[in-house]
Simulated scan of single mutants.
Amino acid sequence: MAQPIVALADVRLTLPSRAGPVEILRGVDLVIDPGEAIGLVGPSGSGKTTLLMVLAGLEAPSSGTVAVAGQGLDGLGEDALATFRRDNVGIVFQAFHLIPTMTALENVAVPLEFKGERNAFEIAAAQLKRVRLGHRLDHYPGQLSGGEQQRVAIARALATGARLLLADEPTGNLDLETGAQIVDLLFGVQREENATLVLVTHDPVLAERCSRVVHMADGRIVRDRAVVAKAPAEVPA
């Protein structure tokens, strides 16, 4: 049996506040196998995005164990966590988080250059062509539409061969038609790469496109269910 790509055991996160300690995550147990697509749903404040940040090594839990891609994250320093993210995790944010002074090509090449990839710009160009932006390589984020910026973000997330793709409301800043195109693209490339996808969403229809839907409430997983298999998504032409 393949090793899980994600294994969380009794993960808890408590943060201080003026009113006293606030429990954000309250004993989360979660195992995700390679190639799964997980829809992470729940009301605002349920801990979905925080859990995503824990998986990315961007937020350290107060207790419990976190293993991603066979790597235990407990006790790792910032440099080690940065290397872990570079090699294993791709993140797609709602707000794109592109570097405004860099072209689309340069934005996608950045993580490759950090990895020491000699052909960073060739690989970046290939990834942008894959998401149908081969004609936008030299454009800056401010010259791109919201959907195009999100395509750049997806290309950047996939460029280093990430085994785990984390998406936090990736269509939240897009209109319905553009959002649907981004979703089709995201699921299509996830399936092509056999990557594991964890998708935070408030959209129940979008969550149902995943292989599992994990429901969170009040910092806990309250339901975890499989979704009936559907026909594979295609990368849009």
Rank of each mutant, 00 (worst) to 15 (best):
D175T: 09
Q143D: 13
G146R: 06
L112Y: 01
R163H: 07
L144C: 13
L164S: 07
Q127L: 02
Q127W: 12
L158D: 08
P141K: 05
D168G: 05
K115P: 04
H97P: 04
L158W: 15
T103K: 04
Q149E: 11
P170S: 03
L164I: 08
P111Y: 00
L164C: 09
Y140L: 15
L128W: 02
L133M: 14
F114E: 07
L165T: 02
E117I: 12
P170K: 00
A95I: 06
D138R: 12
H135M: 04
L137V: 14
A155S: 07
N107W: 02
P111G: 02
E169Y: 12
T171Q: 05
A153V: 02
K115L: 09
F121K: 11
V110F: 15
I99C: 08
L165Q: 02
L137G: 13
V131Q: 13
L112G: 00
I123E: 05
E122R: 10
P100E: 07
V131D: 13
Y140S: 02
Y140R: 12
R151Q: 07
G161E: 12
E113D: 06
L128F: 10
A157D: 07
A124F: 03
L137S: 14
A120F: 01
R136L: 06
R136K: 14
Q150S: 10
H97K: 14
L158A: 12
A95Y: 11
P100I: 11
E117L: 11
G179E: 01
G116E: 00
T101R: 10
T160M: 05
Y140K: 11
M102E: 08
A125Y: 01
D138F: 08
T160P: 00
T171P: 13
L105R: 01
Y140P: 07
T101W: 06
S145K: 07
A180K: 14
Q149G: 05
G179T: 02
A125L: 05
N119G: 00
Q150T: 11
A120C: 04
E106F: 02
H139Y: 08
S145N: 09
L128E: 06
E113R: 12
G147T: 13
N107C: 07
L112E: 00
Q94V: 06
L174E: 05
I154Y: 03
R151P: 06
A120P: 01
Q143N: 13
G134N: 05
R163Y: 01
L133D: 03
E148V: 08
L144H: 04
P170Y: 02
E106Q: 14
A157N: 10
L144A: 13
A180Q: 12
A162R: 02
Y140E: 04
G146A: 10
H139S: 14
D138A: 14
E177D: 14
Q149D: 10
L133G: 03
G116T: 01
L144V: 09
Q143L: 12
L137K: 06
T103Y: 01
L174I: 09
R130W: 03
L158H: 09
